[in-house]
Write a protein that binds this DNA or RNA. Structure first.
Length: 483
RNA sequence: GUCCCCAUCGUCUAGUGGCCUAGGACACCGGCUUUUCACGCCGGCAGCCGGGGUUCGACUCCCCGUGGGGACGCCA
């Protein structure tokens, strides 16, 4: 791999078709990490040559999402760079110029066959159990006939004149050496009848012009590498290093699709999965360090990552492990940061979190229960909203022992101006002794009164978060609850 | 169908001929901690797809099967 003397330049080249796929995020991540590791350049290029599929606004959302995850690109449509434009639909003049070269050198040819004919011959080939390919009808059209058809304004495409003999052998960092027979490679359409280039043509031209050194992309592109190499060689350009990443899979091991659960990065972010967790989880799908370490920050990955530890086999996207990872980060990261990230969910729920001391305490307690931030509200709202009780709860609250506990605590708290959580622990022990009630009989009623649930944080934590007045009020409400 | 790629616990993976009685993580199960739940800690269950070679010795190398996936678009 020529990473020593060449300046590393890699690109992430998505299509703006609506949302960022988690597989796309992983491709972007691997490109980003490789660039950072080698002090290289990470480029964002937008492949919007299919007008039918391009969605307005998708480009902006894509950039927003990528930026949110921290995978900041060095060159791209929004930040510029020396090799722009970075949006393919703005590069049509460039493609025209290069396709002409191919036409002139005989490496490409005009094809006037319409889609009906193409479909028909493909169908026949399929029936005959042959690989469906263009039959070469226009491959050797006389020049005057071409000129004539062009003059008539007949619709056309431009195809690659791919050699029928020999085989193409190439090296891939992940797959090692791959050999493919040329006879099975089709005369790929390079320029569509609408004048736009296809992926194969545009990406090769752009990768060359943008001085891309390493093409890191999904394995679904492996079988088209011969076409790409043929293009590079036809132009006399240096072929980049290929790195074909193993696919991300559904649990049934088919290519990850939106069939089974969420595949859009936006939806995970929307649910409040931390980008730290998402990235950490996703890098482990197809890459692993030599030791047993699994938790890495993006910064740490920039150092630890290397292409030679990428796996060959596809990896199932296992949400269970993502969830675990999500919980790890929510519990480990600075509580202030988690609080900031959680803020929007509280606002959406209409909860007033203006008391910041209280809010931080709430977050610090509630974060033990969740793996994404949208979940945190349901574990925190009892600290803000009035508690509600089920029929069963009311039975327990109404019992004699429960009422004794409430009265005791109301009195105890009213006599106490300030406290630390430790003081409260002492108070709990004293209460148990004084009342002669212990275990669940003691804890469940009071937790119910304070928190609205028999299960949850310990009593000192609850009282500490609620504060004296709110605690007393809740206990009083429970004491006077209508049966 | 054709071509290409792949193959270690259910899942993500470590392992590059003897360090393997196959290691770690998730999930699952059990225990501890806790008044409870969660967290945390400790422990357990579970795997080299099959068959041939090569070798003194194969998870590791080769071949053949089998299985899975991808590509075969005027989509990327």
């Amino acid at each position: 791999m020529h990473t020593g003397n060449t300046q590393v330049r890699v690109r992430f080249a998505p299509s703006p078709t609506g949302y960022l796929h988690v597989g796309g995020l992983r491709t972007a991540l691997f490109n980003y990490l490789f660039a950072r590791k080698h002090g290289g350049t990470f480029i964002l290029r937008i492949e919007d040559t299919d007008q039918k599929r391009s969605i307005p606004g998708a480009l902006e959302e894509l950039i927003t999402t990528l930026t949110r995850t921290g995978l900041q690109h060095d060159e791209g449509p929004d930040v510029g760079g020396d090799y722009g434009p970075y949006i393919q639909s703005q590069r049509t003049d460039i493609y025209k110029q290069y396709i002409q070269q191919l036409l002139d050198s005989g490496k490409a040819y005009y094809c006037f066959c319409d889609e009906e004919r193409i479909n028909r011959i493909r169908e026949e080939q399929r029936k005959r159990k042959r690989p469906p390919m263009y039959d070469g009808k226009c491959r050797d059209l006389p020049l005057d006939e071409i000129a004539d058809k062009l003059a008539q304004g007949l619709p056309f495409v431009i195809r690659l004149r791919y050699p029928k003999e020999g085989k193409t052998v190439f090296d891939d960092v992940v797959r090692d050496r791959v050999a493919i027979d040329n006879s099975i490679i089709d005369d790929q359409v390079l320029i569509k009848s609408d004048g736009f280039p296809t992926y194969h043509f545009a990406s090769v031209v752009d990768d060359h012009l943008m001085k891309i050194t390493h093409v890191i992309r999904g394995e679904e592109w492996l079988s088209s590498v011969p076409k790409h190499i043929f293009l590079y060689e036809s132009f006399g350009w240096e072929v980049p290093v290929f790195v074909h990443l193993p696919l991300l899979l559904n649990s049934d091991r088919s290519k990850l699709s939106k069939r089974q659960g969420d595949v859009s990065v936006e939806s995970y972010l929307e649910k409040g999965y931390l980008t730290e967790a998402l990235l950490n989880f996703i890098v482990l799908l197809g890459w692993h360090s030599a030791d047993d370490r699994e938790i890495y920050s993006l910064k740490e990955l920039e150092d630890a990552f290397s292409l030679d530890r990428i796996n060959k086999a596809g990896a199932v996207f296992d949400i269970e492990k993502l969830n675990w990872m999500g919980g790890q980060y929510i519990r480990t990261l600075d509580v202030g940061y988690i609080a900031d990230q959680s803020r929007r969910f509280f606002e959406e729920a209409g909860i007033d979190i203006s008391d910041n001391d209280k809010y931080l305490k709430v977050i610090n307690t509630a974060r033990d229960y969740v793996y994404c931030l949208s979940m945190i509200v349901e574990h925190a709202r009892m600290f803000y909203d009035a508690v509600t009780f089920s029929e069963e709860d009311r039975d327990l609250i109404g019992q004699e022992d429960s009422r004794r506990i409430f009265s005791y605590w109301i009195e105890a708290l009213e006599g106490q101006e300030t406290w630390s959580p430790d003081d409260l622990s002492v108070l709990v022990k004293k209460a148990i002794g004084d009342l002669g009630i212990k275990g669940k009989n003691f804890y469940f009623p009071i937790r119910l009164a304070l928190f609205g649930n028999c299960h949850g944080p310990d009593i000192p934590t609850l009282i500490d978060i609620l504060g004296r007045d709110e605690s007393v009020e809740r206990l009083t409400n429970a004491l006077h609850l209508e049966q």
